[in-house]
Amino acid sequence: MPTTTRGRRTRDALISAGREILEQCGLSGFSPETVAQAAGVSYGTFYTYFESKEDLLRTVVRAVAGEMFAASLVSPATADDAYTRIVEANRRYLRAWAEASKVLRLVEQGADSDEAMREMVLEVRELYVTRGEEGLRRLQGAGLADPSLDPRLTAIALGAMVEQVAHVMYSLKEPLDENEVVDHLSRLWAAAISLRGRPGHEGGDT
Rank of each mutant, 00 (worst) to 15 (best):
residue 3 T to D: 06
residue 7 G to I: 02
residue 11 R to G: 00
residue 12 D to V: 01
residue 13 A to W: 10
residue 15 I to Q: 05
residue 19 R to T: 09
residue 21 I to M: 12
residue 25 C to V: 14
residue 25 C to H: 15
residue 34 T to S: 07
residue 35 V to G: 02
residue 39 A to Q: 02
residue 42 S to K: 07
residue 44 G to I: 02
residue 49 Y to E: 07
residue 53 K to W: 03
residue 54 E to N: 12
residue 56 L to A: 03
residue 68 M to V: 04
residue 71 A to T: 06
residue 74 V to W: 13
residue 75 S to K: 01
residue 79 A to T: 03
residue 80 D to N: 05
residue 82 A to W: 07
residue 85 R to F: 06
residue 90 N to T: 04
residue 92 R to N: 11
residue 92 R to E: 12
residue 93 Y to W: 02
residue 95 R to H: 01
residue 97 W to C: 04
residue 99 E to Y: 02
residue 101 S to L: 09
residue 103 V to D: 01
residue 105 R to A: 12
residue 108 E to K: 08
residue 108 E to P: 10
residue 110 G to V: 09
residue 113 S to D: 15
residue 116 A to W: 01
residue 116 A to Y: 00
residue 118 R to T: 05
residue 123 E to N: 03
residue 123 E to K: 02
residue 125 R to H: 07
residue 129 V to C: 10
residue 131 R to K: 12
residue 131 R to N: 11
residue 133 E to K: 07
residue 134 E to Q: 15
residue 137 R to K: 15
residue 141 G to V: 07
residue 143 G to W: 02
residue 144 L to R: 02
residue 149 L to P: 15
residue 150 D to S: 04
residue 159 G to H: 08
residue 161 M to Y: 05
residue 167 H to E: 06
residue 170 Y to K: 04
residue 172 L to S: 05
residue 181 V to D: 00
residue 181 V to N: 06
residue 183 D to C: 03
residue 183 D to T: 01
residue 189 W to R: 14
residue 193 I to T: 14
residue 193 I to K: 14
residue 195 L to A: 06
residue 196 R to G: 15
residue 202 E to I: 12
residue 204 G to P: 13
residue 205 D to V: 10
